[in-house]
Structures are given as C-alpha cells and as structure tokens.
Amino acid sequence: MRGWIVVLVALALVSCHRAELPVLPVGGNFALTDYNNQRFELSSLQGKAVLVFFGYTSCPDVCPTTLSKLASVDKELGKDASRVKVLYISVDPQRDTPAVLKEDLGSFDVDALGLTGTKPEIDKVVALFGASYEIIPTPTSAMKYSVAHSTTLYALDPNGRTRILFPYDASVDDIVGGVRAILASTT
C-alpha cells in the first residue's frame, strides 16, 4: 500500500511539479525529547517544511547515507534551506541518549534535530507514521544487537501534514524537487 503511495506521489511530482500534493494518511503531531534534553513537539516547527526519518546512530550505512544525502539537499536548496528542518528519530533509545545523538549528528552539515524518548513514546511515533523497526539480537557480534528499521523519508508541509514519502533510493534531486513543491504550495 505504502509502496503505491510512493509511486503515485513520484508520478505526480514528475507529471506536474506544482500539482496540489495530497495529504497522506500518516503522521500528525507528536512529542519526544530532543538532543538538548528538551521536550519537543512537532507543532513547534509550524511554518517550516520538515523531513522526518527513523534510524539509530550505530547504523553504519543507511543513516550516514541518508544524512549525507540530506546535507546535499540542504546545499541544493540554498536560501530555502532555512525553511526546512530535518528530524532524526532514534529507534534505539537504549544506546542513543540525547548526548550521543547530539555528538553524532554534529558531524553532518545539515540542520537536523535528533529526537529520542522512552520506548513507548518512540513506538507511538513509529505507529503514527506507519514506520517499523525491530531489535534483532546478534549474540555472536560485538554490536550485541542490531536494529532493523524502515527507511522511508517523510516530507511534511509547514502545517505538519505528511505530503510525500520518499523511498531510501530517492535522489537528492527528487528530494529537492519535492521540498520545493511543498514550499511552493504553501506560500
């Protein structure tokens, strides 16, 4: 189902850049703890386009790849980058304390806020976005456990409504185009 939404949205973007983007039936306001140990609510970002994804900092591939890609998106957006905020929601609260999130996100050149919380709080947000994750014990490995997680990037409009779902392999241009479409439709 979600795959189809991605395809449909991608087609809509290709066929008409300024088309009215649908409001997707996932997401909504939520509360977590940010990497400064402050309570965070999505509604506090009213007026900004928001890119949300789920990950964990011990992840060597997907999460650095997504963050590097989003750093390129920010660069491409130029002055519009100030109207966009990235939210990195950890699905590994046991290892990803606010301090760890802050330290690790600092090495990427992107305006990303790291979010964490208790497991029930995180589970609630994961369910809200129709995302998924699973803790996989790896007793023979030094990492002890791995975290499988969905890799969708959610693009929210300045009113916090989810407008586009980008698959993991979306290009920088795809994301820049989507963000510009969101910003254009709301100004």
Binding site: R2, E134, I136, T138, A142, T152
Partner: peptide, 20 residues
C-alpha cells in the same frame, strides 16, 4: 581494532537490517 566482522545490509520486507 579489537575485532572485525563480516556484515550484510539487506531489505527484509520493508526494513533495512544489518546482520553478521
């Protein structure tokens, strides 16, 4: 390093998973 392991990333259903 203290240890080195062979790992694989793969899509399982809709999730990306890393396993030794």
């Amino acid at each position: 390093a203290a240890s080195a392991e062979l790992h694989q990333m793969q899509m399982v259903k809709t999730m990306m998973v890393m396993t030794p």
